[in-house]
Simulated scan of single mutants.
Amino acid sequence: MKKILFATVALLVVGASAPAIGADLGARPYYSKAAPAYAAPIYNWTGFYIGAHVGGVFSSDNNFNGLSTGNNGNGRFLGGVQAGMDWQVNPNFVVGAEAQYSWLSGSVGAVFPGGVAYTNDQRGLGSITGRVGYTWGPGLVYVKGGYAYSDNNEKVTVGGVPTGFIISGDHSNGYTVGAGLEYMFAPSWSAKAEYQYYNFGDAHFTAGPLVGTGNFTTDDHTFKAGLNYRFNWASPVVGPY
Rank of each mutant, 00 (worst) to 15 (best):
M184W: 00
P209V: 14
L227G: 03
Q196I: 06
L11K: 06
G201K: 00
A23R: 09
I167D: 08
G126T: 02
H53Q: 15
G208C: 00
V81H: 01
W103Q: 13
N153L: 06
R123F: 00
V177Y: 08
A234R: 08
G146F: 09
A27W: 05
A179V: 10
F165A: 08
N152T: 15
Q82A: 11
G139C: 07
A23M: 13
V14M: 06
E98L: 09
S168T: 12
F93V: 14
A99C: 06
V177E: 03
N44D: 11
Y43S: 15
A18L: 02
R230K: 12
S168K: 08
V108N: 12
S168V: 00
I42V: 15
R131K: 13
G146L: 05
F231E: 04
G66N: 04
E98I: 12
G139W: 10
I50M: 13
G145L: 10
N44T: 12
V237I: 13
D121K: 15
I167Q: 15
T8P: 00
W87D: 10
G55N: 12
Y134P: 10
N44H: 09
L125F: 09
G126L: 01
G73N: 07
A23N: 10
Q122Y: 00
Y195G: 14
D121L: 06
I21Q: 12
G106D: 11
P41T: 06
G70L: 11
W233M: 15
D24W: 10
F58G: 05
V111Y: 03
G106C: 07
T217G: 06
V211L: 13
G133M: 08
N62E: 09
G79W: 00
M184I: 09
F93Y: 14
N90W: 02
V54Q: 08
S60C: 04
G126H: 01
N215Q: 08
K155Y: 11
T163Q: 15
V89M: 06
A18Y: 00
Y101M: 02
